[in-house]
Simulated assay, not measured.
Amino acid sequence: MVTGRKNALLWIHYLVCFIVAAAALFPIVWMAIAGFKSKAEVLVTPFRFFPKEWITSNYAMILKDPVFSRSMLITFVGAVIFMFLSIIIASLSAFAFARLEFPFKNTLFVYAIITMFIPGTALLIPIFIVVTKMHLLNTMAGLIIPGIASAGHMFFVRQFYLNIPSQLEEAALIDGSTRFGTYRHIFLPLSYPPFVIIGISSFLGYWNSYIWPVLIITEPKLFQVTQFIGNFRSERSSEEALLMAGGTLTVIPVILVFLFFQKHLVQGIKLSGIK
């Protein structure tokens, strides 16, 4: 009786997971399949999930567009640079607040944490003014620098560093290691779990960013991929099949990053949970 009840609950659990997964994946799958349809079939009534005839010309055409290809490459390079800089800054600041003692440490920590509660949209205009004054409009630096310092990432890594046994640090200092040497040889090798989490978060945040690139980038050669898709939708709204093909190609790098780091992401969440 008990075994039958457990099996029933297990099947219900699987059913709920399947429904949630299907609901989440349906828009992506439909978008990918719509890229193989003709322009007239995408929004045909009544709705048809699969095309009458599978065509690949939409994907071929969007890949041949030099602006799209360049935007994919530039966005990927920018996301990788943004990811590594975010990890470095979060790690160094977390080590300072977790392991070092300096004047006004607690005050500065509170000041940093407060920024987590300020909506990002409220900071767009002040940051835009600063970027303009620094002549960073239409530059990769203007896209990358304003967002690399994240209080949330710093706080997350700090909590992980606080759980590293102090005996390791003390032993390194006794052996003559400097503070930076301790950070480099002890803390960095142990930081893989939180680095995976904040790295993926930073990569996805940069890749999916739309408002900020639209504000500071006006030159087509620096268009980010979301910016290209937004302009394409406005200028060529009648070519829905081509738009679906472009949208599908833009999500492929994100899916690949998630699939590649999925195991490490789950492990990182387990090992670096905030305590």
Rank of each mutant, 00 (worst) to 15 (best):
T3M: 10
R5I: 09
L15P: 09
A22C: 14
I28Y: 15
V29M: 15
A34Q: 13
G35Q: 10
F36K: 12
S38T: 06
E41K: 14
L43E: 07
V44P: 01
F49C: 10
I55R: 10
S57K: 13
I62Q: 00
L63E: 04
F68T: 00
S71Y: 07
L73R: 05
V80W: 06
F82C: 01
F82Q: 01
S86F: 00
L92W: 10
L100P: 08
F102R: 15
F102Q: 14
T107R: 02
Y111K: 00
I118Y: 04
I118H: 06
T121N: 07
I129E: 14
H135A: 13
N138P: 02
T139P: 01
I145H: 02
S150N: 02
M154N: 00
F155P: 03
L168A: 10
A171L: 09
I186P: 15
P193R: 04
F195E: 05
I197G: 02
S202Q: 07
F203S: 00
L204Q: 11
P213C: 05
V214Q: 12
P220S: 05
L222W: 06
F228L: 07
S234A: 10
S234T: 12
S238Y: 03
E239H: 01
A245F: 05
G246L: 07
G247T: 15
V251H: 15
V251T: 11
V257P: 01
V257L: 08
H264W: 04
G268E: 04
L271K: 08
L271V: 04
K275Y: 11
K275A: 15
